[in-house]
Simulated scan of single mutants.
Amino acid sequence: MILLISDLHLEEERPDITRAFLHFLDTRARHAEALYILGDFFEVWIGDDAMTPFQQGIAQALRRLADSGTRIYLMHGNRDFLLGKAFCREAGCTLLGDPHVLPLNGEKTLLMHGDSLCTLDIGYQKMRRLLRNPLSLFILRNLPLSTRHKLARKLRSESRSKTRMKASDIVDVTPDEVQRVMARHGVKTLIHGHTHRPAVHELLVDGKMVRRIVLGDWDKQGWALQVDENGFNQSAFALD
Rank of each mutant, 00 (worst) to 15 (best):
L110P: 12
G92E: 09
F138T: 08
L82S: 03
G77L: 05
E13I: 00
L215A: 00
R132Y: 06
D40K: 01
A50D: 09
W218L: 01
L104G: 05
A61S: 15
I170Q: 03
E13K: 14
M51T: 13
A91M: 06
R14I: 04
A59T: 08
S159M: 02
G114F: 11
Y73T: 08
W223C: 09
A183N: 03
D206I: 00
L143M: 15
C88M: 06
V101D: 03
V214L: 05
Q179C: 12
G207F: 02
S157M: 05
L83E: 02
T109H: 12
D169M: 06
C88R: 13
G77H: 12
R160H: 06
A91G: 09
G186V: 11
E158W: 02
L140E: 05
D240H: 11
L4N: 15
R71V: 13
I213E: 15
L65F: 15
R64A: 07
F237D: 06
E158A: 02
M165N: 10
Q226C: 13
A91Y: 09
D219Y: 12
R129H: 14
V101H: 03
I58P: 05
A236M: 14
D228Q: 04
E90R: 15
H192P: 00
D115E: 15
H76F: 06
P134H: 11
R129D: 09
W45P: 14
P103W: 10
F87T: 06
D169Y: 13
V178W: 13
L25E: 06
V227K: 14
D228C: 05
S168K: 13
S235F: 00
A34S: 14
R14H: 14
Q226Y: 08
W223N: 10
